[in-house]
Every structure is written in C-alpha cells, then in structure tokens.
Design a protein around this nucleic acid. Structure first.
Lengths: 235, 235
DNA sequence: GTTTTCATGTAACCCGTTACATGATTCA
DNA sequence: TGAATCATGTAACGGGTTACATGAAAAC
C-alpha cells in the first residue's frame, strides 16, 4: 500500500489498460501521446512500476512484441524467437485488481483533480470515464480557474499603478491564457451536455477496449497536421 | 557559495532590488505581483533568505514599515515605535554585492532561461534588463516553443488514428496554446525591435530605481480591470 | 480578552531528476 | 566489429511542500 503518488501511477495504469507494454515504450507514450504530459525519467518510472507490481496491480511478463499497430493478439508468447518488430524484456500487464483500482481512481474526484497536471491526466483518460464524472472534473476545473482569475484581477487592480509595463504585460497575458482555457472548458461542458452516448454506463465492468469510439459530440476543430516523422523527446 | 537554485533566488533578489522587505511580504509579492509565479511556501522562502544572507547578498535589518506606497525614505528606523502601517520583524535589504550578483544573473542567458517558469521570472524583471538581453531571452523562448511544436506535430501525425477523441482534443488544445504564445512572443519581439529607449545602457551601474518607466513600445492591449479588493492566496 | 492576521521558523517527507552502470539487439 | 538504439535499473541529490511550533500585533 505504499503510496507512490498520483499522476504517474494513474497514467501508467491508464496506458496499460489499453494494452500491455514494457517500461521503455511506456515512457515514450507518457511523453508524447498524452497531451500535456511532462517527460518522466526512467529513474521515476521503473521504481514506480516495481511498486505497482508489489501492489498486485501489474504483473511482469517476459518479452513479446511491444504492442504494435496490429496488436496481433492470440500469439502465445514465443519465448525467445524473433518476433516481428523489436524484442522486449519485461512487459507489464494490468491485473484484475489493477483494473479495479484504476476504475476506482477514475470515478473518484477531489480537489486534486482540478490542478493543472492532474487535470490533464484525467482528461487524457476521459475516453474510459463515465459521463457524470467527466462533468464533475470539467466543472471543477472551471471553477478552479475562475477563482484563480478572481485573484489575478483583484491583485491587478490593487497593484496596477506601481508595476512596470513588462510585469503588467506578463500578468495580462497570464490572465488571457486562463480566460481562454475557461472558454475551452465551456465549450467542452456544453458539448458534454448536449451529447448523447455516455459510454460505459456500468463502471467496474470488464468490457475490453472501447477506445477511439465515435465523435461523442466534441466540438470539432480544423485539424491541420503535416506528416513529418521526426523523433521523440531525446532522453 | 551554496547554490540555492535559480528561480526563487533570482526573484527574491529582483524584488528586493526594488525595495527592502521582510519575508512575509516577499512571499505575497511572489504569489501575486509577478505574473505567473507559483506560490512558494515559507518552508522554502525563509531558508533561502538565510543562505542569501550567508552569501553576503542580503543583510537583515530590524523592523520598519514594510515598503508602503510612499517609500518614506530617510526615516532612520525608529526601533520600537509605532510607525504607520504594520510592524515588521526582519527586513531584508540588498547589499552592494547582492546588487552586483543580480546584475550578473540578469545579463546571463542560458538554455534554462527558455523554460516555462524561468522564462516568466526573467520576463518579470525585463524592466531592469538590457534590451539586448531581452531580445535573446524572447527569441530563445520562441525557438524553444517552436521546437516543442515540431515534436507535438510530429507525434500527432504519427498517432492520430489510434487516439480517441478526448486525447486528440487535449493535444489540439495544447498545441493551440503553444502557438498562441509564439504569436505573443512575435508581437513582443517586433515591438522590441521598433521601440526606442533601451534603458540602462551600462550594466553593473549603481543608478537607483528606474522602474515603471515610460511605455517602451510594448503592444498596447485593452486593460479591463474592475476594482475588487478581495484577498490574496491564503497560506 | 479573545480571535485574526502578521511573522518567523524547522523537521520530515515526497516526488522527481541526474548521473551512472549494465547489457542486449540492430544496423552500418 | 563497432556504433546506435533499445532496455533496465540504482544511488545520490535537489528543490520543494506539509505540518508543526511559536509568538507578537491588530482588530473585534
């Protein structure tokens, strides 16, 4: 029960719920796939994995092809043969208890969930989150930001005159960023309200993947992407 | 010479350069006045002040009115009398060496300076920074963000299909935020280029305050502020 | 005279990084 | 055969928070 804290544990569990992986790849996904996520170092990740194993939430399995595009399921782990792709050393798989634990984390919301990084992590797994919980998180986040805005406005009003232009500009830009996120949240909340499809109505279930489902009613934005397979965050 | 690290030390030195203060007030300024600044706890601040004193950059002085609007200079610290405002215990004042050290920090730029919090801190003291250095910092920050954008775009291109809508939306919003900051930086850089008034042409000098000078050519934005003296970040 | 706010501190802990050590696999 | 990348770890340290202890001044 040694509490390796929140966000990393949460993200690891969430990613492994989608498919088993080994540490190295897990880290890459942590850096890139999830939106805002900071780059955790191996020095953080591996010990964390160990304790998750110790908690019975993960099991270590010997090698296997690290979850590539066609999951190639049903392949019964040929011990040391040359599978396609590269070889993996230790593949971590979520146990039943791990799954359960993750569900619990998913459905629980507290003041933590509104904080920047924590919120991003929650949001990244909204795909597996119940609609009701999604709403709570979004609204919690919003009011968190709104109270932050209050403070900024107040402080700005108090100190306006004695600040130099740069400080003022910094504050202005900061506030604008927050206001922008509030508007974003408003859109999201709105589209949650109007959207049908609440997916996963019964929590704690055992239904396999359900990821990458249909639009769900998210506000659509133009997605301009230019193909450029450069590489990931170096070490 | 014990290196209590960067950002807090920098900010403390910078704030004390403007006027002497005691720790309690210093912390409030850290929270509110400077744009983005996180709320440092006393557990961080006080020990830091101690080491700055040990380094000879600050001196502790007994009480006095904690720098209120009219600085009321020339008042020779009446030991235990009831000055206007509230009473202070230990007032920290920047020494000559402290000033010099701060100038040094101000003029030095390295990869650190482009990182989020570090950048905000640098920006907050642009008022005392030479124009040339300001440019370096702004441009460094911009290219830092641009390479971050590269990575995001690349990763997005690689993984687009296998991500669910929420993750996608999170990434989209993240990228948009970064793009927005780049545009902001562009404006700032542009107005630095066209602006006259480089203030403080000779570094390491001893000229007293020069803060809150004239507009300087910053891009003007509408500043809507409604007076509402609510309070600061509690504890 | 009691509560609130101002004010200063410290010890224990937490989360994470850096730098290092190690070795297997792939590629040139 | 040697370099690059994949892959796993660990010990030392760093920077910060929390919770606690203490007390004086101001406000009610």
């Amino acid at each position: 029960m040694s509490r390796r804290s929140g966000i990393l544990e949460f993200a690891v569990l969430g990613l492994l719920r989608e498919s088993p992986m080994h540490g190295y790849e897990l880290r890459k996904r942590l850096n890139t796939s999830l939106g805002i996520f900071r780059a955790f170092s191996y020095g953080t990740l591996y010990p964390c994995l160990k304790t998750l194993v110790a908690n019975g939430w993960l099991i270590e399995e010997p090698g296997g092809a690290p979850a590539d595009l066609p999951p190639s399921v049903g392949r019964p782990v040929t011990p040391a043969s040359s599978l396609a792709g590269r070889r993996a050393k230790i593949v971590y798989r979520l146990t039943a208890e791990g799954k359960e634990h993750f569900e619990e984390l998913l459905s629980h919301t507290g003041p933590d969930s509104w904080e920047d990084e924590h919120f991003a992590a929650r949001f990244a797994f909204f795909g597996q989150t119940e609609r009701e919980v999604r709403m709570r998180v979004l609204e919690g986040r919003r009011s968190r930001l709104e109270e932050r805005l209050e403070k900024m406005r107040a402080s700005l009003a108090r100190t306006r005159e004695r600040l130099d232009d740069y400080t003022l500009e910094l504050q202005r830009h900061g506030m604008e960023s927050v206001e922008r996120e509030v508007r974003w949240l408003n859109e999201l909340i709105e589209s949650e309200r109007s959207g049908r499809d609440q997916r996963r109505s019964s929590p704690g279930g055992d239904a396999q993947q359900d990821i990458a489902g249909e639009p769900d009613g998210l506000p659509r934005h133009r997605g301009d992407t230019r193909p450029d397979p450069s590489d990931d965050t170096s070490q």
